[in-house]
Design a binder for these strands. Structure first.
Lengths: 206, 206
DNA sequence: GATAAAAACCCCCTTTTGGGGGTGCCAAAG
DNA sequence: CTTTGGCACCCCCAAAAGGGGGTTTTTATC
């Protein structure tokens, strides 16, 4: 075993991608065969690169990293995706793992963890960096997790729609929307819409 | 001229700091004499490091980068601060430059721009990366800029306080708060509080 | 086949917000 | 010396949100 692992990095921070390329190269375990700074760039070259591992940032300039992850795993099932992001929010981790990622690293993890993670994922394992591992092991009740409908509702509330507008948009009774809104306030422990929006954005629930 | 420039990096993303250290070293123009992953870490060693340039991320885990920049420039006026961050928001750039930074780089700038920036700032110039330079040159009317009172108000609104609560907190008439609230909605082009909070957070006005 | 959770719906009543107007004071910039 | 912008204040009234209670159906999961 232990042949060199081919890696592609997708992240819009050129400083990070350039630095990481050097680091991986110097490590001897992996080689960066491609770098993309957006989903589009990646889409154009991935078929040619065909890496073993794809390091993916969730905050891409042109589309949601979660969406892109879903797209990649269905088009290229042999390419393992290792999320490498700034967020350590339960919601983000869970969403990207549900969409086909094989691992999750936060950017302030140790550099060695990146190497360990790449090797683990290349061997078919699922890898979570220490910090995220702890996060996922916490009892489920303490985590913020919303149903599909609730997330949809939250998005529309954050966009500033009133109950009646939301009702018209998704063909439901305004009373139903009111119910969801109240429940969201309760679930997220928000006093009013202002705090609700704040929590939604901070926890990347949208 | 052209002696090697001593640089310190303050950023909590260890992957970025490690990569950047290698990049700067390889460039031959600068040397990383210290790395800190938090304001506290930096505070403990800066007196010993005494670099020419300090690369500073605004989103530190333990305190606001803007505050920390202010602190550093007053304590160590000879150390030039070059902000290196993810944000290209007018408000963030303006605030950090007002607090003593000598330059501003966004993380998705070209790696070469970092080198150019470091050299420029070391020569006593003010350096803005291309993207930010364009941003600052845009006519002032198109930029979001709030007065001190307005920012204070916005913070309290985002925290979920009602007009009456804010009034009680800062000893003003509830009608005054109402006036500010209306004006904020107008200035930021928000339809209601939900959108106001969203814009405030996204543009880092708080 | 029970249990639980999500989804959709309803009423009463109070508080808060938002849209529209308006006033006056003071300091800095032109 | 006038204009502009920040700051503080006021009224009316309609719309929206929030606090409290409730019901039913469907859809998983055990």
């Amino acid at each position: 075993m232990d042949r060199i692992i081919n890696v592609v990095i997708v992240d819009d921070h050129k400083i990070l991608t350039d630095g990481l390329r050097t680091l991986l190269h110097d490590s001897g375990i992996a080689k960066v065969v491609g770098i993309a700074h957006s989903a589009t760039e990646c889409r154009n070259s991935i078929g040619f690169w065909m890496p073993d591992i794809l390091l993916l940032d969730v905050s891409l300039p042109d589309m949601s990293g979660v969406e892109f992850c879903k797209e990649l795993t269905s088009l290229y099932p042999t390419v393992k995706i290792l999320a490498l992001t700034t967020h350590n929010e339960y919601s983000v981790v869970r969403q990207i793992l549900e969409n086909g990622a094989s691992g999750y690293l936060v950017k302030n993890a140790m550099t060695e963890e990146v190497l360990i993670g790449i090797q683990a994922v290349a061997n078919g394992e699922v890898f979570l960096c220490h910090e995220v591992d702890l996060l996922m092991k916490k009892p489920r009740e303490t985590q913020l997790w919303l149903s599909l409908r609730e997330r949809e509702m939250l998005k529309l509330i954050v966009e500033g729609l009133t109950n009646t507008e939301i009702a018209a948009r998704i063909f439901l009774s305004p009373e139903t929307i009111r119910g969801y809104r109240k429940n969201l306030l309760l679930k997220l422990g928000a006093k009013n819409t202002a705090v609700l929006v704040k929590i939604a954005i901070e926890h990347k629930l949208i």
